[in-house]
Nucleic acid binder design. Structure first.
Lengths: 158, 158
DNA sequence: CGACATTACATAGGCAACCTATGCATCGCC
DNA sequence: GGCGATGCATAGGTTGCCTATGTAATGTCG
């Protein structure tokens, strides 16, 4: 298994953190190849989590640029997954809402992808369901703190 | 924080597995934006782990197509990170080897990326080092079993 | 109330990473 | 020697994402 020529087994915090990213990248591509992972899924996922939002705020939450999110919203709107209306309180901004069809599409993708991944996880006796939850939590929290600390956190609540 | 309109909090195995992929995708893009994550890193990482290999085998290990790996190898060879020689035992195939410079480059990227990610992880008191190790293991093992079951698993070592 | 910075979004243009399809040379085998 | 299988390269096209920039609406301030 181990090759004597390798630099060293992943042991340090640095290698661990680096490996986290590398393996995440591999997983994403592997999923994109075999399953169905359009970029718009993340948009639907955010709207499902946070409710209606404007484009810029969506971009921040997805850690992408505003033009990228504009395109994603336009594409999703074309397919009827989201509804984009001008904000009545601010003519500059929009309000993007998850439609019923979008919710169904999100559920469909979650189901298909989830089934595959869950099946593979089930074949790994060394990893409990709790381990997967831990992995998800690590990834999520890792991103949360990489945002601007004060402004974007759901301005609706206040 | 929670919005009453949302479909539901991630609870089922399916949603958990799906969220794993979505969050992984977000992390990868977030890292690509701020840090340095050229595609070739994965190639170097594989060579570091497994030692010299041919292009097709590398592609399988990285879960990418063979042409993609051919391009990655060519790019890495241009920069002196790998050495590509014809296989003396089989004129069809090549043997790609990690050079000293490639090893150094891999160490550099692991250091810079690792420092950033590790620093952010350190700012998350709710996640232990063990949690990160768990996350890495889940991602890695998840990919291991998605391969052909018998042939490619470093047939050399055993 | 008019000038000016700020904010929210759209558009233009381009690049990087991948993929499928296909061609070519070699190897294994009968 | 013919023939399928294997290893790799090339061609062509798609997706995803970025920076730079323009435009319109909003807040601010003299």
């Amino acid at each position: 298994m181990t090759d004597p020529a390798r630099t060293g087994p992943p042991a340090t915090d640095l290698e661990l953190a680096s490996d986290l990213v590398v393996h995440a990248a591999r997983l994403v591509r592997a999923v994109r190849r075999t399953l169905d992972l359009p970029a718009g899924v993340r948009l639907l996922s955010i709207l499902d989590e946070h409710g209606p939002l404007g484009v810029s705020r969506l971009a921040v939450l997805d850690r992408c640029s505003q033009p990228t999110m504009s395109a994603a919203v336009a594409a999703a709107a074309d397919r009827g997954w989201v509804d984009k209306q001008p904000n009545p309180d601010d003519a500059r901004s929009s309000v993007v809402t998850l439609t019923r069809a979008g919710r169904a599409e999100l559920a469909r993708i979650r189901r298909t992808n989830g089934e595959t991944v869950a099946a593979r996880l089930a074949a790994l006796p060394q990893h409990s369901r709790q381990d997967v939850a831990t992995a998800v939590a690590v990834l999520r929290d890792l991103l949360d703190i990489s945002l601007e600390p004060h402004d974007l956190s759901e301005g609706a609540a206040r």
